[in-house]
């Protein structure tokens, strides 16, 4: 059965200039290995291709059961000068959670 990341994970978006940071955690710890397996940097880049114009780096933090995606050149020009409605990219955590796994 295909399910969305939103069914098994939670996420928070943060910004630094034109870099978007997306954290990802399983709602239940047992699903961490599934996230590690399925949600690769390549898949995130592909899923958010309209938004992510630069490299995507994935950090694994097993002690916290967390993944962190650092996405460069991802916020058109950064919060201070972007024309985007959501210039910070604060809503993009939920774009990640739309991914089918």
């Amino acid at each position: 059965m295909s399910q969305k990341l939103a069914d098994i994970a939670h996420s928070r978006a943060g910004d630094k200039g034109n870099t978007l940071v997306l954290s990802l955690f399983p709602l239940e710890e047992k699903d961490y290995s599934l996230l590690v397996e399925k949600v690769t940097a390549e898949k995130v880049k592909q899923h958010l291709s309209h938004q992510l114009k630069g490299s995507v780096t994935r950090h694994e933090i097993p002690e916290l059961k967390a993944l962190l995606f650092t996405c460069e050149n991802a916020l058109t020009s950064g919060v201070t000068t972007s024309l985007a409605l959501d210039a910070h990219g604060k809503s993009l955590s939920y774009a990640l959670l739309e991914m089918k796994i």
Binding site: R12, G14, D15, V21, I61, L64, L68, T70
Partner: peptide, 13 residues
Amino acid sequence: AKEQLLYEVLDPG
């Protein structure tokens, strides 16, 4: 706490 710990963090190390 986990969500806030990694908020706006480019490299957790």
